[in-house]
């Protein structure tokens, strides 16, 4: 902007000369630096400092600015402000709606998860019950089987004992017969049956 300083300074000097009473021709020649011919188009003084135009400028500025202020404050600004406010309200309501939907979704997810957990728990319970039942069934079957097997074992043992006793009894009668036969062969006479019996009994006991 320093380039502008020189011409401005010259104009101000020119202005001063006018006020000192130097004729306008001298001023214009001096004041207009670049092109020389005096321009009669503008008056003797520098326009922004020409006081004769002040009343007119003030009047029309007052009228136009009051008009502008009225138009702005009554029509334009409330309208723009309204639009912006509407948008802000709309955004706020949209955000609230989004928030509402989000909470709704969250409750839905929560209820889904709780029902899922419940179902899972139920399934586990059912599985446990089934397992217990099967276990119990298996146990009872095993016990029954064991009892049956035990009973069979007992009868078998009893039978063995009976057979053994019977066999032993047979062994005694055979022994008695054999003894009396041996004695008959040796002595040539039949021994007393009672004697043989006691002798065998004694021998078997030893």
């Amino acid at each position: 902007m320093s380039e502008a300083a020189a011409p401005v300074a010259k104009f101000i000097i020119a202005q001063g000369e006018v006020q000192q009473g130097i004729p306008p021709e001298a001023n214009t020649v001096d004041g207009v630096t670049i092109e020389t011919p005096a321009s009669e188009a503008h008056g003797a003084s520098f326009p922004p400092f020409d006081a004769t135009t002040f009343p007119s400028q003030l009047l029309w500025l007052a009228i136009s600015f009051v008009l502008l202020y009225t138009l702005m404050s009554r029509i334009a600004l409330p309208r723009i402000g309204g639009i912006i406010e509407d948008r802000a309200n709309r955004i706020a309501s949209d955000l609230a709606e989004a928030q509402r939907l989000k909470t709704e979704t969250e409750t839905a997810i929560a209820s889904y998860e709780s029902s899922l957990a419940e179902a899972r728990g139920k399934a586990q319970k059912i599985a446990g019950e089934t397992r217990d039942k099967l276990q119990a069934e298996t146990d009872s079957q095993r016990k029954a089987l064991e009892a049956e097997l035990g009973a069979r074992l007992d009868t078998a043992e009893k039978q063995i004992a009976e057979t053994k006793a019977a066999a032993l009894a047979n062994v005694r009668s055979i022994a008695v017969e054999a003894t009396s036969e041996i004695v008959t062969r040796l002595l040539g006479e039949k021994p007393d049956a009672a004697h043989v019996e006691t002798a065998v009994t004694t021998a078997l006991k030893v």
């Binding site: 004769t52 135009t53 009343p55 007119s56 400028q57 009047l59 029309w60 500025l61 136009s64 600015f65 008009l67 502008l68 138009l71 702005m72 029509i75 334009a76 309208r79 723009i80 639009i83």
Partner: peptide, 27 residues
């Protein structure tokens, strides 16, 4: 006192008209 309607006054009213017309038609 000279109260003539000048080029400056015309521009002042032009500004008012331009601003008002722009703001109202834009919105």
């Amino acid at each position: 006192v000279d109260l003539a309607f000048t080029n400056s006054a015309a521009f002042m009213f032009g500004i008012v008209a331009l601003v008002f017309f722009f703001l109202t038609s834009a919105t």
